[in-house]
Design a protein around this nucleic acid. Structure first.
Ligand SMILES: [Mn+2]
Ligand SMILES: [Mn+2]
Ligand SMILES: [Zn+2]
Ligand SMILES: [Zn+2]
Lengths: 146, 146
DNA sequence: TACTCTATTGAGAATCATTCTAAGTTTAGG
DNA sequence: CCTAAACTTAGAATGATTCTCAATAGAGTA
């Protein structure tokens, strides 16, 4: 999905739940969508600051989107701030413990695991947050050279 | 593994890496081991306060254990504080989004998933943090009644 | 248009988990 | 004993997030 489409989807979801569409919310949704990766609140605050948008509004919008389940909080233990995932379908987030890069991996195995777990434990799952810490290929190469 | 054993293992691991065994560290390790679930730093601070142990020491000890890889930080997005897992082997943590209970699920599927991912992405993984949010059986029943 | 009522915004203050500082205490080794 | 390094801890600092509340914008209405 293209960034512009994604931004629209975020706004639509807000509207669908009674939130007004405002220039500020539009800017926040666009910043989220155009980030491309796993944005942190601070990064979005930074991105929309030139447009004179306050941090309270950024946090409010992000929290609203999170409550609607259209984005997902993703706290990490390497980084100080929580990051957000625009992809709420279950997938593995591979976090490089050296450079912090985050790589998405959609493995069918994960869906199997969750399905099996659901039937076993007898619960319906709302969301999954799968994070694996390792070293990305680039950092692995760098380490070998050094 | 019994709590007392676990506490010993934590201390041994500290000692093995050059940390002295002190009464404070002993108390912190015991509090961690006897917690039974997934303790937060605040809970440990609380648990050892009667023994006159300061929060700085608790945080220092926990951070040391975490660096040694013998416990693992587990930030959640339901709760405000990071929790710690004494079981660092990959497993699914099922978090009840209603009551906050955390259930460990060791599913062989997960090991398969990680192995496959490692060969696919070409990285060796250091640790995994798998959290699934849902509703525990007890809260599910309560909801049905209400 | 003019008005009203509610949602929204945002600067700045407050909160709160975690980290840092710095001064005192312990201890291993000689 | 000495000494140097490790350890402890009260309290201050930090920093992400949340809250407050006065000002603003906008939708619906007359
Ligand atoms: Mn992701
Ligand atoms: Mn666990
Ligand atoms: Zn990397
Ligand atoms: Zn529950």
């Amino acid at each position: 999905m293209r960034p512009e489409e994604r931004a629209q989807r975020l706004l639509q979801e807000l509207e669908r739940h009674g939130y007004r569409t405002t220039p500020q919310r539009e800017a926040v949704c666009q910043a989220l969508a155009y980030h491309g990766g796993h944005p942190s609140a601070a990064e979005i605050v930074e991105a929309v600051r030139p447009q004179g948008i306050g941090q309270a509004t950024v946090y409010n919008t992000i929290t609203a989107l999170e409550k609607l389940g259209v984005i997902q909080a993703m706290p990490l233990n390497t980084d100080e701030h929580t990051r957000y995932d625009l992809d709420t379908t279950p997938h593995v987030n591979v976090v490089c413990s050296t450079c912090g890069a985050i790589l998405d991996c959609h493995a069918p195995q994960l869906d199997l695991l969750l399905a099996q777990l659901a039937s076993q434990v007898g619960t319906s799952f709302e969301s999954a947050n799968v994070v694996v810490y390792g070293r990305c290929q680039q950092c692995q190469r760098t380490q070998l050279v050094a």
